[in-house]
Amino acid sequence: MTLIVRDFRASDAAAVAEARRAAWPYRVTTAEGVAWEVRNAPAEQRFRLLVAESDGLVVGSAPTGVLTGEDTERHRPGRAFTDVHVHPAHRRRGVGTALLHSAEEYLAGLGAGTVYSWTLDERPSTTFAERRGYRRGRGSRCLRLDLTTAGLPPLGPLPPGVEVRRGTDFAADPRPCYVAESAAGRDEPGDISPDPGSYEQWLAAEWRRPERSAELTSYVLVDGVVTAYSIGLTDGRGRYVSGGTGTLRGCRGRGLAKLAKNHSLHLAHAAGCTEAIAGNDTGNAPMLTINQWFGYRPAAEEWRYLRELAV
């Protein structure tokens, strides 16, 4: 077997997406999305998509880069990421080890001190991480809802002053969506503080993301102000994935996030999606409760592992 690790080429997009879907079945992945993440990564992220090629066949990849954002308690300089994805049919052949070695070598050269990496809660994956010096951090729950049998709550009348719109209604000016998403997203639990960046960065990295569906995304407006949202992602294969649900601080506890998500799920069902997937930090009790109320059931667990690099 001839194994090499190299940088991504545009012609790799379909193969990388296929391997990633097989390795990480609870996320939405498309060839268009793989190519997009390489083209639109912020310059300061120093992003590289490492690809493992075995005898001419792409069998795995590792998106790798520096975490960018505000210097807050949850986001300190010198932190980086890499997520190793290896097609299950090609594991135990040194592919993951080669990808991780190349990723860590690159990040160490950039001066990264801590590397974060997601893994599924399955023995081969967690053992792989722990044997290479990674320790377990925060967890996330993957939940699944069968949209072919789910009895979604009916879309009843809205309270006075409240309206629901699709993402398509903001095509001409999505700035109100950016304001709401960036404000509410900062309160999302986790060991890494999300940073939406500038409006222009958000447009490139989020709004124009190929898997993001404006048709399946819902925004709740209160007195004309975007107050809550539920982002819908899809792979065009019948899968709907929640890309984030939130409510502005000060407006929580009124059922607005649930209202946004219910509309988004109805849109997904009407569009022919057959399953819905959601991932929530284990400390995000409000969102876990909402998803369980809709009928989502546990499908898998994920862990974010971290390792201190000797630089």
Score class of each variant (00 low, 15 high):
1 M>D: 09
12 D>H: 07
13 A>S: 15
30 T>L: 05
34 V>G: 07
38 V>T: 13
39 R>Q: 15
41 A>P: 02
45 Q>H: 07
47 F>M: 11
53 E>N: 05
56 G>Y: 03
57 L>H: 13
58 V>K: 07
64 T>L: 10
65 G>C: 11
72 T>C: 05
73 E>I: 07
76 R>Q: 14
77 P>S: 11
78 G>Y: 01
80 A>G: 12
81 F>I: 04
81 F>H: 11
82 T>Y: 00
86 V>P: 01
88 P>A: 10
88 P>R: 10
90 H>V: 03
96 G>S: 06
103 A>S: 15
103 A>N: 07
105 E>P: 01
108 A>T: 13
109 G>Y: 02
114 T>L: 14
126 T>N: 02
126 T>W: 00
132 R>Y: 03
137 G>P: 05
140 S>T: 12
143 L>G: 06
147 L>D: 01
148 T>V: 06
149 T>E: 15
158 L>W: 04
159 P>Q: 09
164 V>C: 12
166 R>Y: 03
172 A>F: 02
178 Y>H: 10
178 Y>V: 07
181 E>P: 00
183 A>C: 03
189 P>K: 04
190 G>L: 00
195 D>S: 11
198 S>T: 15
200 E>V: 06
205 A>S: 14
209 R>Q: 15
210 P>C: 05
216 L>A: 08
219 Y>Q: 05
220 V>L: 12
222 V>F: 00
225 V>Q: 15
225 V>S: 12
227 T>N: 10
229 Y>F: 15
230 S>P: 01
232 G>M: 04
235 D>A: 09
238 G>S: 04
240 Y>N: 07
242 S>L: 11
248 L>I: 06
248 L>F: 06
250 G>C: 03
251 C>V: 05
256 L>K: 09
256 L>V: 07
258 K>W: 08
258 K>F: 08
263 H>C: 01
269 H>L: 14
271 A>I: 07
274 T>A: 12
285 A>Y: 01
290 I>Q: 10
291 N>G: 07
293 W>D: 14
300 A>S: 14
307 R>L: 11
